[in-house]
Nucleic acid binder design. Structure first.
Lengths: 198, 198
DNA sequence: TTCATTATTAATACCTCGTTATAACCTTAT
DNA sequence: ATAAGGTTATAACGAGGTATTAATAATGAA
């Protein structure tokens, strides 16, 4: 009775550890779980978990294929855009975006989509968010497709107030109001930023 | 004369190839450039290009430290945490988090750190953000280290209001107020969510 | 209690994609 | 012809595995 449950527990712990950090070696896992490296290998075999190289390669190619929000200018896919007034984007969520213990998409992905869309809508491309008020209205399941619609509500010089509403089918899941500031050209802007350094 | 230019050309080609696809093995590179594997190694050495494993690991951990595969429960590193009252986290920013044309970190990384910290602070672990009001006070340069401090301001049943302030050194860069809702246990929660499907 | 099963650990050979070091070739410019 | 630069071959090694077989310990059922 004991060993069996220990094993099951360890399997869960293993999954959690790799969920948190997929770049751990078997050796590191073994020491964290206080078992031999061989046991970890058997566990990975039982759970169908690939080796470190595989995991690193998968993460890497995911990152390359733009699955990584960090690599995209607009998080999601821009469906329609009329800079200065309105834009639409689609984001297909997946398992990689979910909380570890709950079957729902993490809020910051939804925020990232809305935020980047707001920024893209306000100005041609060169703008940043100064502030935002957001509501996560309803949970989103991995696999659902988010459609975000941004509308520029008001504009005053470099400032734009943009409303974003995100839906899954008919269901509203997110509402946000962003204050977006247009930027000068990149060169002079980057120069002025360097004052912050040192 | 010839060999020199051939070499230079090959170096350029090599850089281009790896730029397009950093996950090519030396063998693949050798066959693409019609030279021996050893030559590729010498070229990588000359150009300071790391080996495949290294390249994969870098891409992978970039992806992780970004907000990609939702891997981390808290975006950044949890420095201190007293669930229910206060927590501190550190996020070292890097080039992968910046806007393409401006030398500054994208807002949603700052948001993600603050949001996940707010969630982690409100309850032991199981909570989500319902709404937030955020201000991006000052731009952040890639490479700067963000220290976010979350304070639970008020609590009423499952609801917690959490204030987060993020600084780089002494400079305040972000302020946010999050309404966080505690969740029931994962199983029953996930079950109730399934109603949303179909 | 005894025997069979399951879980864990160990030992061994082999693999991939590298590494370093050394030696052997080619061209080609002088 | 010969030195120099560029390329290739060969061998020994390392990290982090796979795959297999065997030994040992703990548990469950007869």
């Amino acid at each position: 009775m004991k060993k069996r449950t220990l094993k099951k527990n360890r399997h869960e712990l293993l999954l959690n550890l790799l969920d948190e950090n997929p770049l751990l070696t078997d050796e590191e896992l073994a020491s964290k779980l206080q078992v031999s490296v061989q046991t970890i290998r058997l566990d990975r075999l039982a759970l169908g978990l690939p080796e470190l190289k595989e995991r690193a390669m998968r993460l890497a190619s995911q990152a390359l294929n733009g699955l990584n929000p960090a690599s995209q200018e607009v998080v999601g896919e821009l469906l329609f855009s009329e800079p200065g007034s309105e834009a639409l984007s689609r984001l297909v969520t997946d398992e990689s975006m979910k909380l570890s213990r709950y079957n729902m998409v993490r809020g910051h992905f939804i925020f990232a989509q809305a935020n980047s869309l707001a920024v893209a809508t306000a100005e041609a491309a060169d703008a940043i968010t100064a502030s935002a008020k957001v509501d996560f209205v309803s949970p989103v399941l991995p696999g659902e497709t988010l459609i975000a619609r941004a509308l520029v509500e008001r504009k005053d010089g470099k400032k734009s107030w943009v409303n974003v509403r995100t839906k899954v089918e008919q269901r509203e899941v997110f509402r946000g109001r962003f204050l977006v500031i247009g930027l000068e050209d990149p060169e002079s802007f980057n120069k002025s930023l360097h004052k912050l350094e040192q």
